[in-house]
Design a protein around this nucleic acid. Sequence first.
DNA 1: ATTCCTTCACGCGAG
DNA 2: GTGAAGGAAT
Length: 702
Amino acid sequence: MSLNRDQENIIKNINGPILVIAGAGSGKTRVITYRIAHMIKEIGIDPSKILALTFTKKAAREMKERISKMISIDELEKITLGTFHSTFSRILRKESHWLGYNPNYTIYDQQDSENVIKKILKDINVDINKTPREIIREISECKNNLYSKSLIKKKKSDSFAKIYEIYTKRCFQSNALDFDDILLYTNHLFLNFPNILKKYQEKFQYILIDEYQDTNFAQNVIIKNLSSKNKNVFVVGDDAQSIYAFRGANIKNILNFHVDYSEAKIFRLEQNYRSTNHIVQASNNIISFNKNQITKKIWTKNENGEIIKIYSALSDKDEAEYIANYIFSVIKKNKSFQYKNIAILYRTNKQSYIIEYYLKKKNIPYKIYGSISFFKRKEIRHLLYYFRVIINPNDEESILYITNKIIKNKNTVKQLIKLSNKKNIYDVIKKIDNYEIFTKKTKEKLKKNFLEIEKFRIKSKILDAYTIAKHIVYFLLELEKNYHYTDFQYILRNIFYYTEEQKKLKKSEDNSLSGFVQYLYVEKDIDEFNNENYEDKVSLMTVHLSKGLEFSIVFITGLEENLFPSRSSISYQYKIEEERRLFYVALTRAQKIAILTYTKYRFLWGKKTKNIPSRFINELHKKFIHIENEKVKHISTLLENKKFLPENSGVIKKGIIVFHKNFGIGTVIKLENFNKIAIVNFMKVGKKRILLQLNKLIIYRK
DNA sequence: ATTCCTTCACGCGAG
DNA sequence: GTGAAGGAAT
């Protein structure tokens, strides 16, 4: 397939700032990859001058793969291509001394950060009514928006500012950065050291950014600084697919692009090449419910295709079984059809379990994406903590975790934490004999462990990542009798691949354990280990992870109020809009067939919950959908040929049709108690008394 | 000092 | 359902 005129035009405009607003399936990645190839092949731009940034590891890998088909490996290796975090983490490792950090710094994940906050809350007496998780979130918000100290005090509170300050200090002591620090410190670096900024401005003369709608303020500032000299910034985005607001993504970056870059040229890509006309129209229909959007008309020359199927399942088991049966018969009917063209999407990772069970039952090969469960496994965590402390002896979280496993006594650990508030924990353990508070036995254990780690540290300087990792695994198996070698096989195999790959690329400096850990945390998508992507398997993943991908058949599961849209989004209009964009992303993954499922009952949090269908199902116009097994009248039947009023634009009166977030669609039968209570007959749940002061009823039709 | 047991809170997404 | 936390029992 060649490029269309619009795409061609975009590729040939090399200099100056460019914003491309690209709808789903309009060949966005194609434009970026062709452009990079064009820059190198036709214009003769030095690939080492090119910086290409993506948001997720998966997108980075995808882009790399696609470019590799157009240019030589040598040229590809010279391009700086990766996620924001990986790219700037690399830069920070090179330049860390400017900030007083060591290059072997640890990256704290959310769990680590939370533990640090917990310790702080115990250590100091602050008046703050927030959970560690909430605090971490707010710290993240401050960092992503580059709030100054005084602004933090103003926007949050004095006690919060104090916690923030101690948190920063502790991370510094541990020679650790959290993910947000990677952006924050890159900004510090560029702001406070003009020579460093200049160096990178000269290196990265051409900057390309995918999924620009997902960038946050801190990222935007980095890019503005980096590009201020050459002004060659090329960004591609779709506001309708902005789904990372929770980590600071800001659509304003797209809306204000022409303000940030005054000579910006703006292009639009609105032709969809991916999906059937039905799916394109249905997606347009869905997204039109969002008030906050750049209006665009996505269109396609593709055939109408099949109508969207909706399956109303009785339970999560029924839902999973339906999906498994459907896949089974599709493959059976059409022998040439492949598993890898099918995706099952869900809102939350935990929904995957039951689906897996039924796929296994039907012998359907599948692959689950999303590394969360892998990193949460305690033996893997334990191993990674050893890796980390060997690389960075100041990594307090690792030391405490490991110590916790060796010293089971909580009081002892508490004492250690107390000491760590004042002194570097590593030095405390090193000189443990000086501390009277511990018993002889405890001291012996601590000393022994300390020496083991020291030994590994020396070894790690000469051995490659795989060899040292094997040593540590054997050590761990000795230490914890309930661990099994098979628990570690997967990660060991991947360390082996990593080591081999580095040798092949002759990057022996990255061949170390430290190289691998960096790689694991910010570079490599753990899902892509083992080169399994060439295998013919059904893909299971969250909607978030599916962005940028496409499949012939897409199942969107769990379309229930409180799940998709998620429970915490329901009471906020702007959060609902983000959920709707998420649904839009899910729907636009489908090339040929989209199947939406929801359940009446689902096991969640150990309890059986009763659900009503997602509002997104109701929003789809009747002409796009076919409800497989539901007799209930669809809202679009009610609305046919009638004017649609999406907002609460009137008074609740007898006879009008309303929408309630929990009960769905219903008709107002009468009003009581001076119009404070409405008796509504809901289609799904029957008559209910609704207290109007507490419950919002959205008027669908007068 | 250590293990065992009950209770309680929590619950989304990614790097 | 899970993991953390704290109390009870050994």
